[in-house]
């Protein structure tokens, strides 16, 4: 285990952070605009989100770089800013974290499907190597919200070239029992493949609420000796008058998180629909 992980991990789960996109929108990020671009144009507001999580008790915060691989930024017309946006993302989170939290830099999917031939493995690998290198000033890298195990494996291999610990986290939201990735992989298949690809932490995020991720966490835990990372949504989204609403309250979310502790999960945070209030509630329940 890397020294960073050894230092972080104890008997209780490490509290990570919650959603960023919705928080940025609350601060005025226009709909449809690439949030990552704000690292350059509105660093103070991005910093405000990072700070709100540190203040709420996050011991690990991510970065506003989820879409900052070359393939995705090209679609947003920001291809020439890849390095700057990633570097600024780490700097902003680092500034907010100070010595109170570690910075795990976020790497999301390319948004293209390998098996449809929309991108080649080499293009995906190169894009993730480029992004990972630009994030090298972080404490660790988090490959998150992956739906395709193949893309996740390529991302892990690419991220490992930097030498930082790598978290690899996938979305489980498909199949009868909502325990498969979109491409049909089970928690066991994911754990095995990503452990073999060299990940240091394996996890699940987005797609399901706390309830859905408790059994997934237990299965991941059984399938790999590596620490487990879980960031569920605030329940399942409902559409009310054209707005997405998440019904789970911070207190319910935190109460359900007890089961993640019991399952031996190492890192707990939130994804879509969560906010600093959720992190504060997790902190109170899991690290009183």
């Amino acid at each position: 285990m890397s020294s960073l992980l050894a230092q972080l991990l104890g008997p209780d789960p490490v509290i990570t952070d919650g959603a960023w996109g919705t928080q940025l929108q609350a601060l005025g990020l226009p709909a449809g605009l690439c949030p990552d671009g704000w690292n350059l144009t509105h660093p103070d507001l991005v910093r405000q989100v990072a700070q709100s999580y540190v203040d709420a008790g996050s011991k690990v915060i991510l970065t506003n770089t989820f879409r900052s691989n070359r393939i995705t930024l090209t679609a947003h017309g920001l291809a020439d800013r890849v390095l700057e946006i990633n570097r600024a993302g780490v700097e902003i989170s680092r500034g907010a974290a100070g010595s109170r939290a570690k910075v795990f830099a976020s790497i999301g999917p390319t948004g293209k499907m390998l098996m449809m031939g929309e991108v080649s493995e080499e293009e995906v690998f190169n894009a993730f190597v480029e992004q990972s290198s630009a994030l090298a000033a972080a404490d660790a890298l988090v490959i998150e919200t992956m739906s395709d195990l193949e893309e996740a494996r390529i991302a892990v291999r690419a991220a490992k070239t930097v030498g930082l610990p790598v978290v690899a986290s996938m979305v489980f939201d498909s199949g009868k029992n909502k325990d498969r990735t979109m491409m049909g992989a089970t928690p066991e298949e994911v754990a095995e493949a990503l452990t073999e690809a060299g990940a240091d932490v394996i996890g699940a995020n987005c797609g399901l609420g706390m309830e859905g991720y408790i059994p997934v966490a237990q299965r991941l835990r059984m399938a790999t000796p590596l620490p487990i990372w879980i960031k569920p949504n605030a329940g399942l989204p409902e559409l009310v008058d054209g707005h997405i609403v998440y019904r789970t309250t911070p207190a319910e979310f935190a109460r359900q998180a007890e089961a993640l502790r019991t399952a031996g999960v190492a890192f707990v945070g939130g994804c879509c629909g969560t906010s600093p209030e959720f992190i504060h509630a997790l902190q109170k329940v899991l690290r009183p």
Partner: peptide, 11 residues
């Protein structure tokens, strides 16, 4: 019936 997933549909 969850016997096939997206990759099988696609091929």
């Amino acid at each position: 019936a969850n016997e096939y997933f997206v990759p099988e549909l696609l091929i």
